[in-house]
Amino acid sequence: MTFVRRPQRSVATLALVPAGVAVLALAGDAVGAVLGLVGAVVLAVGVTVASRPVVSLGGGVLFVGVLAAGSAGASPAVLVFAAAGAVVSWTTGQHVVGLAAQLGREAPVRRSVLAHLASATVATLSAGVVGLVAFRLAAGTVPGVAVAFLLVGVVSLLVALRS
């Protein structure tokens, strides 16, 4: 019996679902859609051959697609989905690769992957929805610059809190 450090196809597919959502969300913008699609394909290859760098490359290209669509003026709600999809797909892809390295192809891992997928989705989407609601409530009253300051401040504090 062999021990293969690559994921089963069905498990790898789970990691690609959010990438699919992101690509659909990006469909409105030509550049974003192309980058998104390329990123999703690279990510799929990375997960299949169990390579963390390739997964990150795919997730990165997908994310650049999100940036492109955002610069071109996509709607905030759509963009929240696209950004969340890119991040969740990337982290789930990493999770699947890590599982394949530790446990190999034969081990049953589906429930672990689903749990990771679900918790990452909740974390990104809930934050995104808070952002959306705040944006709707504050539209026109809060300067964008203030929001940017707040975000930078929060991110920096988060970094500082990391050990």
Partner: peptide, 19 residues
């Protein structure tokens, strides 16, 4: 002329970092 939607979307990424 792109509008602030990317700033809003970045909150989702910040959420992932926070998590």
């Amino acid at each position: 002329d792109g509008g602030p939607s990317l700033v809003v979307a970045s909150v989702a990424v910040v959420g992932a970092v926070g998590y």
